[in-house]
Design a protein around this nucleic acid. Structure first.
Lengths: 233, 233
DNA sequence: CTAAATTTGTGCTAAAGAACATAGTTTTCA
DNA sequence: TGAAAACTATGTTCTTTAGCACAAATTTAG
């Protein structure tokens, strides 16, 4: 009983949040050169170690950005929603991709080639500045994640992940169910723990009436207390 | 027996590695407005949570950039050497500092006010692009650090830190001693472990003839093996 | 120069979390 | 639709590493 998702595809000028700082010519340039790609659930969009090719803009769906660590353990470092960009960091740094990107669910991506991206970056200061801002935010987030994942205990890390998912993807109509359904493994890979521990800790949270679960659906019952747990480690 | 360090102060145009992309006017503008500040060993240069004020360029010395986590535990996220920049991320993101910066040793810093920095960023595309590149590198490093610190075991993390210090600060004339002397605590805060474990693990490394120690001086004896330990976790 | 404070070193204990095993459940897809 | 694969759940064991406590050594400061 997969819900048939009828996602209307918004145009690139509608999805690309930096469109407003582009000149008339640049807009035409992109309109005439961008490509659209569709990915099925679990399909890999870009691979760690490969040469970067495009600035990508997520139009529909949800994707995870992660690094493969040691012994089959992955660490999710970002999770994107429509309108967010990826794949461009490696182009700017002129080095291979540092992360793998995979579709959580069926996703649609607008792509702008690396050369075209760089050419606009080099000519349009406002455009360049927008990406500078974005990386500034991302860097602070990444540094914060390092501390959270290394210093908080399991319960704190899981609570933090649940709250992140809620803040990032929002809730469904019932005002409680988190609008993204992750496997226990993905949840574990986001909060730096083993799958068994994610399962166990989720079960504890259910017992303590902090959340309720139905398969992969998670309802947040006591956000207050979750925030406290997340804060304290 | 503190060694009297006679560090000749290089001029800002000499230290600031993005000087070459500045226009004649911008150079004059900075020459007429920058300030110099001296900090003693262990003095705090900027504080997490405070409003950012300046783009800072380290002219002399070494500084650590870190976040204060939970229960007295700090995590060092960057360590800078002369010519490197800091303090500017928060200006661009327009938010409070996300890190604290402290001098490891007596240090000298050139400062350019936030407004002046932003004004040049907004008018000089090449300048803006340089910082975009820098943040691109830093972001990949930060994500990599997250994985290293969460997934590697203690020995792997310490080996990695020692190699980082060697690669970042180089060796002394003897071709073996790492050119920075850290307390065990700082070493622990860089490799995400307790001070006792840093001490213990260093002692193991000495026993295994991977390194030699004399107080805070650390000689790298078997880099090959250290790299293996760092890689494997 | 001496007392106080900080840093380093070592041993012991406890807790957190990983690893593994196994079984039940759900999903996938041929 | 039915078998295989993937995911979820739970119990048990074992390792890693944090958390003390305390002593020795070194540095700092009055």
């Amino acid at each position: 009983m997969a819900k048939r998702q009828i996602s209307l595809l918004r145009s690139i000028e509608d999805v690309f949040t930096f469109w407003d700082v582009l000149t008339h010519d640049e807009r035409n340039f992109i309109q005439n050169s961008y490509t659209i790609h569709h990915y099925k659930k679990n399909e890999v969009i870009q691979c760690e170690g490969d040469e970067p090719t495009h600035l990508m803009i997520l139009a529909i769906g949800k994707v995870k950005v992660y690094k493969n660590g040691f012994g089959n353990r992955a660490q999710i470092v970002r999770m994107l929603k429509p309108g967010e960009h990826f794949g461009y960091r490696a182009i700017i740094a002129n080095e291979p991709n540092s992360t793998t990107v995979t579709a959580f669910e069926d996703s649609t991506v607008y792509m702008i080639s690396g050369e075209n991206f760089l050419s606009i970056l080099r000519h349009n200061n406002a455009f360049c500045y927008r990406f500078l801002e974005e990386l500034s935010f991302d860097l602070a987030e990444s540094d914060a994640r390092t501390v959270n994942l290394t210093q908080k205990h399991i319960r704190g890390r899981l609570a933090e992940s649940l709250l992140f998912l809620k803040d990032n993807y929002g809730l469904e109509e019932d005002g409680a169910t988190i609008s993204i359904y992750l496997s226990r493994e993905d949840l574990a890979n986001h909060s730096n723990m083993t799958t068994s521990n994610a399962i166990r800790t989720l079960a504890s949270f259910v017992n303590e009436s902090l959340i309720a679960m139905d398969g992969r659906k998670i309802k947040i019952i006591d956000e207050e207390k979750l925030r406290k747990i997340s804060k304290m480690g």
